[in-house]
Each structure stands twice: as C-alpha cells, then as structure tokens.
Design a protein around this nucleic acid. Sequence first.
RNA 1: GGGCAAGUGGCGAAGUGGUAACGCAGCGGACUGCAAAUCCGCGAUGCACCGGUUCAAAUCCGGUCUUGCCCUCCA
Length: 507
Amino acid sequence: MALKVYNTLSKKKEELVPAEDQQVKMYVCGPTTYNFIHLGNARALVVFDTIRRYLEYKGYRVTYVQNFTDIDDKIINRAREEGTDPLELAERYINEYFRDADALRVKRADIHPRATEHIDDMIQMVKVLVEKGFAYQAGGDVYFSVRKFKDYGKLSGRTPEEMLSGARVDVDERKQDPLDFVLWKAAKAGEPFWNSPWGPGRPGWHLECSVMSLKYLGEGFDIHGGGSDLIFPHHENEIAQSEAYTGTVPFARYWIHNGFVTVDQEKMSKSLGNFFIVRDLLQEWAPEILRYFLLSTHYRSPLDFSPESLKTARKGYNRLANTLELLDDTIGDREDTAVGRLSKEAEEFRDRIAACVAEFEEAMDDDFNTALAFAALYNMGREINSFINDRAFVPTPAVVHVLVLARCYYQKLMDVLGLLPGEKRELGPEYKDMLQEIIDSVREQVQDLLPGELPDDPSELLDLLITLRSEARGRKDYQLADQLREALKRIGIILEDTPRGTRWRLV
RNA sequence: GGGCAAGUGGCGAAGUGGUAACGCAGCGGACUGCAAAUCCGCGAUGCACCGGUUCAAAUCCGGUCUUGCCCUCCA
C-alpha cells in the first residue's frame, strides 16, 4: 500500500518515495529552549513522533534529527531577566524539555544537535555564501541577499513582490533589501559571542537548521517538518540559503507542517499568553490522554483546546484502553498455540480483526489520517469486546491463540499512536491502611470469614475484600455488598461484576 | 492590502463525484440484585448561503457571507 503525504512544497498529496529504499531521513525543527513547552509545541512533537512511528511500523529505517536552538535573542533576554548565563539557561530547559517529551512518549531523536555545537560549520556556510555572492557583509552582520536566489518564495507560495506589499518587514538600513535576512549577527556588549571572520557574533536563527540537517542527513534528505508558522520565513530562508550553498535542489524533498492548537479559536502562543504548559497539564491528565487529544484531529487542521475536550478525550481513550485490559484479563499468562479447530465464529472474528488492521493502515497511509485511524481502532475494539463478552464465548486453546494474535495487532496499532497505557498502576503500599479500615468497618458482619490476622499486602487485602463481597452477594446481602463497593470506590478502586467474576481497576 | 486554509448532527471529527465513518453526550433495549463495563438499536432528507456543470455533488466550477492562520519571534 502506497503511503501518501501532503507536501507543502507542491501543495499536493504525493506518494512518499524515499531517496534511498527503505530508509527515511527526517529533520524536525525543535524548540528554542528558554522555558517550558506548551501544548502547541507538544502537538508538533507528538505529530512528528507519530509519523516516525508509523514509518517504522511500515518497515522503514528512520533517521530522525531534531535540533535545539540553544542560542538566540529570547534566550539572551530571558537569561538577563533571571540574571543567569544564557547557555546555562538553555541547558536547563533542554533537560526540562526531555522530561516533558519523555512523559508524552515522544521517542528520542537519533541525533539532537545543538546550535552552539555547530558554530564552526555555520561560519563555514556563511563564508561560502559570501564567496558565491549570495551574501554580503554589513558592519559586523552578514545578510543573505534574497533577490539573488531566484526560487525565493517557492515554499510559502509568495513572490518577493507580494511579500513587500504587506510592508510589515522591518526596515533596517544595513540591509540592501528589506527582504534580506541575517546569517550572522554582530554581538552587542554583554551578549555571548563566537569569533568569526566578520568579528564577534552569533548565528542567525535560520542558519542552524540548514547546517545541521545537511551535516547529519546530507543533501536532498527526505522529510523536513515543523509547525506551519515556520513555513515563512524560517523554512523559506532555510531553503534559500541551503540550495544557494549546495547548489542541490531540492534541499529537502517533502515538507510537512502541522496546524496549530487554538484556544477559543485563537492560536495558542507564548506571545499571546493563552498557552497551557505541558508540565501543568500532566499534573491532571495522563500522557496518553494528551496524546489522544493531540491526534484526534488530522495533523494539518486546527485543534481547539479546552478542559472539556480533554474530558472527552479521556473517555474515548479509556474505552480503547479498556479493551486491552479485557484482553489481558481473558488471556492471562496463557500462550496457547493453535491447536484444535476454530469455530466458524472464531474464524470470522479473526478475519474481521485483519480487516480492521487494514482499515487502520489505509487511514495512516493517507497522509497520516489519525482521526480515521481511531475509527479503525474503535471498530477493532468493538469486535474484541463483543467476541469475548458473548455468552457463547469459550476460551479453548485455539480461541485463546486467536485472541493472542488480536492483542498483538491491537497493541501494535496503539503503539504506533503512542497510546499504549504506561505501567499498569499497581496497588501501592499506601492502600494498605485504607483497605484494612474498610475491612474493620464491616468486621462485625464478616467476623467468621476473616483470617486470624489480616495480610499486609494490599492486593491480598483487596482479594479478601472481593471475596467477602462475593460471599455477601451469595447470601443476597446486597446492602453489605454495595457498601463495600462504595467504600472501595471512594478510595479509587472500581469493581465490576462480570459473568466470570469480579474485576477491579484503579480510577 | 497580499497569500493560504476552513465552515459537516447537541459537541468533536472523518469523508473530495454515486446519496453521510468514528468518538462524546442523549434516548430506547439486552445483560445485571443494583451498578459499572460491554453489546444492539435510534438520531444530520442533509454537509455556511446562492447559482452552475453532471444521469449523479458535502465532494467539481463561479459568486457571497463568516472564521482562522501567515506576511513580525512563534510548533
């Protein structure tokens, strides 16, 4: 099945054909590290992480590079406010970045290059651009001459004339043309600097991505990604300076851009101040839920954030995760191999599972349509739930074998979206006292059923409670049974009675 | 002013030529002592509006309205 991706460069969906067979090289613009990431930043991370996961699922070997902009005006300003060293500040927020990204199950890139570690390479590129006549020095600055690059505007779909008509470009007398952008910036007093042929200074923002992507992925690499606010000027400028430098067209073959997270239909951004910090959201919401939310809409569409939307996401996600639990509860540790004949029902079930997998892949093949992929997962979950909960269900070895296969598929697909539940939450020791209290509260009614001494282990305590309640239900003492269920619910343990016994789970 | 998207049931969201996935909420039913979970069924006669093309349009074309984004640091 052919994988199609929307290429900003051509404004069309195109079949993804990597330069090298079975190998995809991708570069994604990473954060400027001057504070914590917000949900908008997280969207880009999760979207491109999911793209990467799906490519790997399809059997591609993916080389994934994501940079850190660890020197720039915002970092310098922030450091000045805090009275700290800019490079230390950047280092600190790189670490904070990893805490959030790891929590969100964003796989680490193969290479996380930093701008400050590639200053020499950047100086080298500027030198060549000056030699080739694409750049000029003005004081201690060096600018790229946009008019010299005839393809300028091909990514953003605008001509230099159109850009000028908006007249919001800053006028700087050192520039020969208002559209020119800075490659090398002279240092002002007190700013961090590196020595260069043009005097002490630091690189312009666009330069690092060109240098580092070319260095680690080579000319004409496959995918370059980022948020759509990077199309202009960042990526446009990257293309200009890179293609001018190497003479190779294209600099990158597929350009992929994600849409924004909005709040009340307005773009979430640091400058507007309407942003939600990932670190804060993780206090209240499981990372899977944030991921589910971020992937519930196609990556190019706007995604409106509200606490209510996360509640909906949680419900939807719980349903998907519940199927996984049902599978685990049903299969347990059994690893039955295919022995015995399958019933017609089981055969049909197996075929329908396969159809759902195909449905999922078809969705993802169509420009990573995660919203449609979710539909496939829900259909698959429904098949599994129905099959197991059917009255006629009998877990023969052959049937369990089919379920093991179904679980394998289901887990794989959930994992592509990064939605596999984290470590199943265990009953920690903190539950011991609470569980013992519940037992004590009904001690009189169940005295003869209790062992001489209560166990210390919380799960043994819970098992005991469930046994006591089953006993009560057997006696039709529903008042006691409900009392126990309510008490457990208050400490966050949900009981569910099924034909095959009582299940419990943590809220 | 220029460039680019989008407008689908109560809400979210797929669908780009053959008559509307999926999720949340709601209603009815099954199961259950009850609950939860799960399953089944119901719900847009219509896809911003007006024209047009076509045997056939949410889907193509033209126009109108509305919203958002980019043109400035920004995922």
